[in-house]
Design a protein around this nucleic acid. Structure first.
Length: 464
RNA sequence: GCGCUCAUCGUCUAGCCUGGUCCAGGACACCGCCCUUUCACGGCGGCGACAGGGGUUCGAAUCCCCUUGGGCGUACCA
């Protein structure tokens, strides 16, 4: 047990995306490795854009990835009283002030400053205004330091410093009385006792402002670790334009959570030349020291490769259960008489995703085999009838196991004088409907004696 | 524009801190060969990078500076 306290603090304005998931994963890994506490906090102060559906989607995605939290979820919208209290404290101590500049005025000033080539900072118009209490609309700004330097030692990036002149007086409370992100994040991180804040490096620029607020409020400043961004193939920040960015979309596409976790962690973190990591490996091996400093490009191909790996090496029983779900989605909820774990064994080396596996498994569980037209034309011909009949005869009386089925084929080969290919491929088409399928003996075994024979008979009937 | 930051194969990266063992290693992708009852799996091999320029040094991917390029920020979003 350690006193490490970390958190994942998504804003519920959409599904859990690749980048957020990685941040959550890093936090989770650190907490588990060091026996610390992992807190989940929902940053829903933007009441306009936050939705319960998003919260549910995020929770579901974390659950899918196996990222359990120890405390929370906490909702910021339920903590407004606390924030109000802190704003008042700052106001009372003269560390914050009311600003009556309108949003329009501010926009105008900002544009003017830009046009002049100046920094688009708030000019401090209301900073030293005498207190007045008319009812004109106002926001509350934090009175930041005008001189000196604010710096911190980032656990990933090293020391980062900002001239305080670069920091203007940011708004901590909106006209409507709600607090803003940069303010509440400090209060919550402090009140929740965080010792380390691991987040995306798009927050680096916010950090000095936040540090000043910690200090103004008398809170200890936690450590920070800013994780590099994830980019798309064009090196632009990852977005929907780059394809699926929702974690759950990958589940729907047939990805396994362990593949996603493994991929995500390797994007930015490494452990020598190793590529494959289970969650337990990661909890043991993950360290911030081995997280890179530069942004990385999301590479779907490698994710696919990892998925392929985990499918190939996965437990057939478990994969079989998942396969059932994907088959249901494909419209084949009934798998009566077919052992899906056995199906999995025949398809593990041939599927990159569970969806692909399900598509390939359909012929096993379907009532009516769907024939590939050209395959049927080519292999289900009149001359096959006697061959199929001979095979049926053998299958009816052979011992139904790998050796027995193989012997059955051998006998047919001898009887007909044909080479394996001449018997195997037509049989494959008769049983599966197409020319590409698992080994023919495996298919027969998984299908079962009865069903295999029936399909051969159906093929004979089909040929006419 | 300004601020912060990053920079090794197409991509993820090892190496960089503690210069020489690196004419730079691994992985994905790609290409070729082999294996093979179809489709795959697999095995073997190949292609492919220290952004550029200055320094420092006997020696630099490794240290310093500049340039260039990328990312992020610059909201009454988070």
């Amino acid at each position: 047990m350690s006193d490490l306290r970390v958190r994942f603090a998504p804003s519920p304005t959409g599904y859990l995306h690749i980048g957020g998931a990685r941040t959550a994963l890093f936090n989770y890994l650190l907490a588990r490795k060091l026996g610390g506490t992992f807190i989940l906090r929902i940053e829903d102060t933007d009441v306009e854009r936050s939705t319960q559906e998003s919260v549910d989607a995020i929770l579901q995605a974390m659950d899918w990835l196996g990222l359990s939290y120890d405390e929370g979820p906490f909702y910021q919208t339920e903590r407004f009283d606390l924030y109000k209290e802190k704003v008042q404290q700052l106001l009372d101590e003269g560390k914050a002030y009311k600003c009556y500049c309108s949003a329009d005025e501010l926009d105008t000033k900002r544009e003017a400053a830009m046009a002049r080539g100046d920094k688009p900072q708030y000019d401090g118009t209301c900073r030293d205004l005498d207190p007045r209490d008319d009812d004109a609309p106002y926001v509350i700004r934090f009175k930041s330091k005008k001189e000196g330097v604010t710096s911190f030692n980032d656990r990933i990036k090293g020391t980062i410093s900002f001239n305080n002149q670069e920091l203007d007086d940011m708004i901590i409370q909106r006209t409507d009385g709600t607090p803003t992100y940069n303010f509440v994040v400090v209060i919550d991180d402090a009140e929740m006792g965080l010792t380390l804040v691991v987040r995306g490096d798009d927050h680096v620029n916010n950090t000095p402002r936040q540090i000043q607020i910690y200090e103004a409020l008398g809170y200890p400043v936690p450590e920070f670790a800013h994780v590099p961004m994830i980019l798309g193939a064009d090196k632009k920040r990852l977005s929907k334009r780059h394809g699926a960015t929702s974690v759950m979309a990958y589940r729907d596409m047939g990805y396994l959570p362990e593949a996603m976790v493994n991929y995500l962690v390797r994007l930015g973190w490494s452990f020598g030349d190793e590529e494959i990591f289970s969650m337990d490996d990661l909890i043991e091996k993950f360290t911030l020291e081995n997280v890179g400093r530069s942004a990385g490009v999301f590479n779907p191909e490698k994710l696919l490769w990892l998925n392929e790996h985990y499918i190939k090496t996965g437990d057939p029983q478990r994969l079989g259960e998942l396969l059932g779900e994907y088959l249901t989605t494909l419209g084949h909820p009934s798998t009566d008489g077919i052992d899906l774990a056995e199906v999995v064994k025949t398809l593990q080396d041939r599927s990159k995703t569970m969806v692909e596996m399900a598509e390939k498994a359909v012929f096993y569980v379907t009532e009516a085999v769907e024939f590939d037209q050209s395959a049927a034309d080519k292999f289900l011909t009149a001359e096959q009838v006697p061959v199929f009949e001979a095979l049926v005869a053998q299958l009816e009386q052979c011992s139904f196991d790998a050796e027995g089925v193989e012997a059955a084929f051998k006998t047919v080969l001898e009887q007909t004088g044909l080479k394996f290919g001449k018997v195997g491929q037509p049989t494959r088409v008769a049983l599966s409907g197409g020319t590409s399928a698992p080994g023919i003996y495996e298919v027969i075994l998984v299908l079962g004696r009865e069903r295999s024979i029936q399909r051969l008979k159906d093929a004979i009937a089909r040929i006419g």
